[in-house]
C-alpha cells in the first residue's frame, strides 16, 4: 500500500489557501503565495502538501494551481464543504489505513498511544505527534474521526 504521511496542515489554512488562489484567478507562483501568506516557509509547504494530497491543488514546478476539486470545495456552504472534504479524505490510503485499524478495534476506539504506534511503524521518519494532530483536525472537520482528549481515545465518528 502506497501511504503518505500527513503534514502539519490545519483545515482553515488549507481552505484559506484555496480562497486566495481563487481570488488570483486559480494560479500563482509558490514563492509569491508563500511570501504573501506570512507563514514560515516550512509550515507553508506543509499546507501546500496537505492541499495537494487532498486533491485541491496541483504543483507543477514553481507554481500552484487550483484543481476542479479545489474549486468544488469552495463552491459549497460550510456543511457541503465538510462533506466534500470527507470524500477527498477517504480517498487517502493513509486514512484508509487508520480507518481499518479503528474499525477492527473493540468498540471502534483506539488509545492515542496505539494510533501513535501505528504511525511510528508505517512512518518511522515522521514526527508522530504532528501527524496525529493533523489526523485529528482533518478527522474532526470531516466528522470521520473523533478524539477524546480527557480519555486519550481516538474513535470512529458515530455516523461512519
Amino acid at each position: 500500500m502506497n501511504v503518505e504521511p500527513l503534514p502539519r496542515a490545519g483545515v482553515s489554512k488549507i481552505v484559506g489557501l484555496l480562497e486566495i488562489l481563487e481570488d488570483k484567478g486559480g494560479k500563482d507562483d509558490i514563492y509569491k503565495l508563500a511570501r504573501d501568506s506570512g507563514l514560515e516557509f516550512g509550515e507553508f509547504l506543509g499546507i501546500i502538501k496537505g492541499a495537494e494530497m487532498l486533491g485541491f491543488v496541483d504543483t507543477p514546478p514553481g507554481d500552484i494551481i487550483i484543481t476542479e476539486a479545489g474549486t468544488a470545495m469552495l463552491k459549497g456552504k460550510i456543511k457541503a464543504r465538510k462533506k466534500f472534504f470527507k470524500n477527498q479524505l477517504k480517498k487517502l490510503q493513509t486514512i484508509q489505513l487508520i480507518l481499518d485499524a479503528v474499525k477492527r478495534a473493540e468498540s471502534q476506539r483506539l488509545e492515542r498511544d496505539v494510533v501513535l504506534d501505528i504511525i511510528a511503524i508505517h512512518f518511522p521518519n515522521e514526527e508522530p505527534d504532528g501527524f496525529f494532530d493533523t489526523l485529528v483536525d482533518w478527522g474532526r472537520y470531516a466528522e470521520l474521526f473523533g478524539y477524546d482528549a480527557d480519555e486519550e481515545v481516538f474513535y470512529l465518528d458515530h455516523e461512519n
Partner: peptide
Amino acid sequence: IEQVGLAGFEEAYPRELSGGM
C-alpha cells in the same frame, strides 16, 4: 457549533484547536 463548521469538534479543548477553529 454546526453553523460555524465546528461539528465534530464539540469535545475538543481550546489547546487542541488552531487559531481559526
